[in-house]
């Protein structure tokens, strides 16, 4: 029998891998991948708990909303990354430390 604890352990692992990617990578697109991993870990938890809510389906519903929000976030973030690349010619988050080019 798969219990809720199994799902939560997998999701904790995914979350920590995402955290590692965000802190260690030197590329904005890879940082974005890490954020997506963390979001997916949270969604996995919601879906796993949603099994015990048959009438309202609260968890599955908000998992759907979170997936759509992730899509919107990614679109905006990629547009920002493209703009940053156009202006600075780099997408290393460590080197982008000015609000506007002088």
């Amino acid at each position: 029998m798969i219990t809720l604890t199994h799902f939560m352990v997998v999701s904790a692992g995914l979350f920590c891998i995402g955290l590692f990617i965000i802190v260690s990578k030197k590329n904005a697109i890879q940082v974005l991948l890490g954020i997506e991993l963390m979001l997916n870990a949270a969604i996995l938890n919601m879906v796993a708990f949603s099994r015990y809510d048959r009438v309202n389906n609260g968890g599955q519903m908000f998992a759907l909303f979170a997936i759509v929000l992730a899509a919107a976030t990614t679109a905006v973030a990629l547009a920002i990354i493209l703009n940053v690349y156009r202006r600075y010619k780099t997408i290393n988050p460590d080197e982008i430390n000015q609000l506007k080019d002088q």
Binding site: E36, V47, R51, G59, Q60, A63, L64, I67, V68, A70
Partner: peptide, 15 residues
């Protein structure tokens, strides 16, 4: 496996 088939399909389509 968590019995959320619709969310799984949405995951594949959107992600």
């Amino acid at each position: 496996l968590a019995l959320a088939d619709f969310v799984a399909v949405t995951q594949v389509v959107i992600y």
